[in-house]
Design a protein around this nucleic acid. Structure first.
Lengths: 254, 254
DNA sequence: CAGTGGTCTAGACCACGCG
DNA sequence: GCGTGGTCTAGACCACTGT
């Protein structure tokens, strides 16, 4: 295909700036000329130029800061969320050096959402653990974990989660009986709620990766539910599944 | 906080239209008045009104169609990608009624990306399986699967994958020896490549959920690598991990 | 063809960050 | 106060869809 392709003025400006960034002609962290300056330089109106910059912003190449300027986005520290039982590898251990703040709240009248996740009736006592991880000064992840009080002794949970709040549940629930048996994680990408956006300090228009995790013990009771939210451009989630020597998984389907 | 909050004109218009949609005052599939009409009705310029509609489009509430109008987005059939060994549940089985097109290509000079995923040297012969699933007439998912020829007999792979191209690898590789042992799936959200956008018939600015999957056999060889792409507003990915009676997973870390 | 959204202009004024 | 980006206007013209 020859693709002569009518491209918009804004599109070709975005292409030009993009190549200047990827080739290193514009260095990470560097400030771009003012929008008015760029607009005259490209011979377009400011609206058109802003449109082009908006594209690059969506691509994560440019960061716009009101009152300061447009900056070439510094190289993204892309961190990894490890799903399942969270067997840690060295790379993830390095990430764990992030700063973390935790707020634990005992709730007696659970809101609608967590109660449903936990498959408990309204009114069940539960603990909400709010966990914010930081990458340097920048919020990097938000975890809201809900633990009901009817299955487990609250003090244990408090201690354990405070030690390893954002790692897999294996370490976290090691001391509990009965031990957890299954983790189910649902991953989707969506826009953040206004709350999430302000907590993570991201624009309401930047996508987040949302992971809903429920942990079930051997008896089938849900012992933990969590809602994890990360800016989509800064994380990837990894899930590893092992097949046992005899494929017992397949027996669930004749 | 009282949040008097300066909101932009566009923002409040978006709020108004959003509530009209969520309360059913505007029905799914219904066409909105023309942008010029809405602009005069709200007393703003067309640019401002288009901005408001852009927000709703990003939220998946409105679909803009060039030359036809703006439409309230029909209820999203949110389908589920089942990770790991893909134990199917009834809900997923229903989704499998989607239409599928498949193109299989034998490649002798693999491109850079798939070769790296497969941990094979450049030049290894491999088969590329392009799989497009449809939800009605709308493309719904794109799967690019790469299978090297050095571990397995190609004919088998061809047949098996054609039968169950977008399900878990358990069914697909059941006939192979040695059987696969591990599936690793990396999930991230990003903008589509121009190719992906046109194949999936989505705007280049709509986020996709990208899943990179590698399947490893018992000897540690990667027997399959796949790059799966879905429009982010139409899928969620589910991963379920079981812990065995004795926690052997933990032994990987002393 | 008429009607729709898509792109663009050449300004204006406002809100933010910093010295 | 100054320079920056953020919002907005009142148009113009182009591109697409349906009749």
């Amino acid at each position: 295909m020859i693709t002569p392709m009518r491209v918009s003025r804004a599109h070709s400006i975005a292409d030009d700036l993009r190549s200047k960034i990827t080739t290193g002609q514009l260095q990470p962290g560097q400030r771009l000329p003012a929008e008015t300056e760029l607009a005259t330089r490209y011979g377009v109106s400011t609206a058109t130029l802003r449109n082009a910059l908006g594209t690059l912003q969506a691509e994560g190449l440019v960061e716009k800061i009101h009152g300061r300027g447009n900056f070439v986005h510094p190289p993204l520290r892309r961190t990894t969320y490890v799903g399942g039982w969270g067997t840690l590898d060295p790379r993830t251990a390095a990430d764990a050096a992030q700063r973390v703040t935790i707020r634990t709240t005992k709730t007696t009248a659970p809101k609608e959402h967590p109660a449903a996740l936990l498959a408990r009736p309204e009114g069940t006592a539960l603990t909400e653990i709010l966990c914010l991880t930081y990458d340097g000064e920048v919020p990097h992840g938000l975890a809201r974990t809900y633990v009901p009080h009817d299955t487990t002794s609250p003090p244990n949970v408090g201690t354990v989660t405070a030690d390893a709040p954002c790692q897999g549940p294996a370490a976290r629930f090691a001391v509990l009986t009965p031990p957890p048996a299954e983790v189910r994680e649902t991953v989707c990408a969506r826009l953040p709620t206004p709350d999430e956006a302000s907590t993570l300090r991201i624009r309401p228009t930047t996508t987040v990766l949302a992971i809903t995790r429920t942990t079930t013990d051997a008896t089938g009771l849900i012992v933990e539910a969590a809602q994890l939210v990360f800016p989509a451009d800064r994380v990837a989630a990894v899930f590893t599944s092992h097949l046992l020597d005899d494929a017992d998984e397949r027996q669930t389907r004749p």
